[in-house]
Design a protein around this nucleic acid. Structure first.
Lengths: 205, 205
DNA sequence: TTTGTATCTGAACAAACGTTCATTTCAATC
DNA sequence: GATTGAAATGAACGTTTGTTCAGATACAAA
């Protein structure tokens, strides 16, 4: 991670230096290709070709292919948690839950490739890397679970099993990426309205 | 498909003939390994080793690796549609929907590997094979969509967008495989009860 | 015991894989 | 114009890949 972040400490980069361009370009290409064809099916040579560089050059920016995958997933999950942290959540459990749905759809619709990667390539991580990403994913689930648990305690929600309902709602929301298209029949606002209502119903009698 | 199905037409198989054993064994091993590690990450030699045979022997039972994957997915989807066809569905839209939920959970809990494969390896199919499997998947979705559409028309359900609700429910149900464990906290009956209620709520005001 | 056939092996194939590294390139600095 | 150092090349490495096929093996029929 952060292969070329010493822009401040070292002498300033001059025009003509490509490191600040190539690094992100590699990550962007890897994200696209991994999401499209799967980690195991994409070769380092393909990623390099997409960037307009030879395979060997990739190793100036990542120690190996596995780390490249891990960084993409890790950064996505970290950004997801940070973005949710920054959201205005309202005061009541009802508002809190609605905010979660709205936020989730916004964040995920803007990053289809990263979303795809983050939950399709878990099994291609090494055990250590898997544990890290899985921990972040669990943290995100827990955000929703806490909302449901609080709402249940205060009587705002009527929930049988909080854990199962959490997983059911996460799955329902995550499923959007399967059919969503940018130029599709439904606008983002419309989708958010529909899902806010679907979610509201699952926690109400 | 059906590499060794001429049992009736040709001379009867005698004891000592292994074709009737090796064929299914290969498919079972491929299913397990593909589900666990992903199509691209599993080699023909690994599958062969699992069966207790050398890689070359696999080609007595499948023309190539791609067909092996396709057959597994195709057979799963076909079995799914056939099993749903045979279900007693009740008379009202409400009963119909409850039957769908119950059936779906039963069928999918019993076949975790095939379920995993059928919706994680779609992108590793050739375009032609993808079209076939995708068509079957669409047929299954349409079963649920028809239930919702009928219930909406008769006034039994209160649904905003039938298509979106269909996809949301499918995703919710499919998500069970992410967390379900055979010896987990919840029995199958309990899970079915919880999900029947969750689904009922999403189609009721 | 010999023949015939279904089943599987073992070696080989070209191609592709992730990764390394000595060498080249070239703009920025002195 | 010479020097420097980051950036990228291109060839090479040892493996592994999917697939083929002539030959070995084992068993049923004769």
């Amino acid at each position: 991670m952060n292969v070329c972040s010493d822009t401040k400490a070292s002498m300033a980069r001059k025009t003509g230096s490509h490191a600040d361009i190539t690094g992100p370009a590699i990550r962007a290409a890897a994200l696209r290709l991994f999401a499209r064809s799967g980690y195991a099916a994409v070769s380092m040579r393909q990623i390099a070709a997409e960037v307009g560089v030879r395979a060997g050059a990739l190793y100036l920016y990542t120690p190996d292919k596995q780390t490249l995958l891990f960084d993409l997933m890790h950064d996505h999950m970290t950004a997801l948690l940070a973005a949710w942290e920054a959201v205005e959540k309202g005061t009541t459990p009802e508002a809190h839950l609605q905010a979660f749905v709205t936020f989730h759809i916004d964040f995920h619709i803007d990053r289809p490739d990263a979303v795809f990667l983050a939950y399709m390539e878990l099994r291609n991580l090494t055990p250590e890397n898997f544990a890290v990403v899985e921990g972040l994913r669990r943290q995100y689930e827990n955000q929703l679970q806490s909302i449901l648990a609080l709402g249940q305690k205060t009587g705002a929600f009527e929930i049988d099993d909080v854990r199962v309902t959490t997983m059911a709602l996460i799955a329902m929301l995550a499923g959007i990426h399967v059919w969503y298209r940018d130029e599709g029949r439904l606008s983002r606002d419309r989708i958010q309205t529909i899902y806010r209502e679907l979610v509201r119903r699952t926690v109400s009698l």
